[in-house]
Design a protein around this nucleic acid. Structure first.
Lengths: 237, 237
DNA sequence: GAGCACCATCTTCCATGCAAGCATGAATGT
DNA sequence: ACATTCATGCTTGCATGGAAGATGGTGCTC
């Protein structure tokens, strides 16, 4: 984890919202957990994190409350802060949430007037194209980014801030899994085809098909992934 | 809002988890917002709430951070704490989240082995019976409680803590709306019939039907409710 | 009378201090 | 040598004080 950026001390950029130390601590810890700087099972003290971030314990303590509410950490009353690991059961839960929310999002987009459907399809197809191109170049990083962007666009198209928030929370929780599975190079072709089917259903204005396509896409990915994790004996990540 | 219960000072009940002042403040404010002791638009200061709860500003401040993350309040940087009101657009968002989650939950329950399906159906039908009985007695309060219990049981049957949490959050947000609409005495018969259809689909082990029934139930209720709110000119609650 | 500047006050934000609890390890007794 | 007990240090929980900022009122000026 790096020292907090000095941007907040410099000239305010006008439109920028002034950030509080609590927000800084929250984002720093969230990022650190996402990229495994704080690996699951790691135990830190508020004081230590506060030192690293160059602030006192208070903002760290308050940021931890948010992170705990979102399920990223667990605070052990007089022992420290524990970065939580994901069990296979957590993965089951997360997948079902994603299946539910993304399915409904796709359905909602497919029910929009044609002009808005077309705009959404253009964005979605753009990311799918990029996935196909990245696959040809064998660029897994780019493939993963485009895939993420497709699913983010799908949720944003539904224009529902609560859905966005829910998805972001489970994405934070499962980000490490995603980084791991990307390297397993599974289902790349299938994903592209399934993305096309989702977009196609939206283009034709068929909500039922769109919902089903989005759901089947996630179900297929889940059923491909969970046995792999079991085979490698990964009980927590 | 009442003074915090003195239970924490008395002898610990063994199995009870020791509660922190932050948790006390969180629950007290959450309850106060739910039952409109803190009405939307109301603006309070941390100091005032702390005085009422008999604690210092710190636990209140930290509880507010959680409430803000869950969308129940908004903290205006140097003005105070604002209890947020729900706009029609918020209702649209909430309904879509509930449609997505409950639909998937019903689908999951209907896919369980028969023994577990039967157990769930028994619970669900029990609550539906109670709704029908309450309707005959013209007991709206009991009707609402049984209806809530049905939907809670539906989510719990899916055995997904994240879904439970999501539903609880949106329930907190829309609890005031629910109290209001209960008195409009709309769709009581329809709800009972729709609940029976959901349970029936689960009993027969038909996930697709169960999901559809759960979704249509919420969609019908929404389409009945939103025009009413518009007619009464309710722009926020 | 109207408008503007300034000050007092109230707010959140954050740092710091103190208290309480638990774990670890050392020291002592057997 | 081993077990038991006690003390010390580290942890979070909470209170309090100071700082920064915004807002509303008041007084002064035109």
């Amino acid at each position: 984890m790096r020292r907090v950026s000095p941007a907040r001390d410099s000239v305010d950029e006008g439109t920028e919202r002034k950030s509080s130390l609590v927000d800084d601590a929250y984002e720093a810890m969230r990022t650190a957990i996402r990229d495994s700087t704080f690996a699951p099972g790691y135990q830190a003290s508020e004081q230590e994190i506060a030192n690293r971030l160059g602030m006192s314990r208070t903002p760290v303590h308050e940021a931890v409350i948010r992170l705990q509410a979102e399920g990223l950490v667990e605070v052990l009353p007089r022992k420290g802060i524990l970065i939580v690991a994901l069990s296979p059961d957590d993965l089951r839960e997360i997948y079902d949430v994603v299946i539910a929310i993304e399915g409904r999002a796709a359905e909602l987009i497919a029910a929009l007037p044609q002009a808005e459907r077309t705009a959404n399809v253009k964005i979605l197809d753009g990311w799918t194209d990029e996935m196909a191109a990245a696959e040809k170049r064998n660029d897994l990083q780019a493939w993963g980014n485009a895939d993420s962007a497709f699913h983010t666009a799908l949720i944003q198209g539904a224009n529902n801030s609560r859905m966005s928030r829910i998805i972001q929370t489970v994405n934070d929780q499962s980000h490490r899994l995603r980084m791991l599975t990307l390297n397993l190079r599974r289902g790349l072709d299938a994903s592209v085809a399934e993305h096309r089917r989702i977009a196609q259903s939206i283009r034709f204005g068929n909500p039922a098909d769109a919902a089903d396509a989005a759901r089947q896409h996630r179900i297929r990915a889940r059923d491909e992934l969970l046995p792999l994790l079991a085979r490698y004996g990964l009980k927590h990540l």
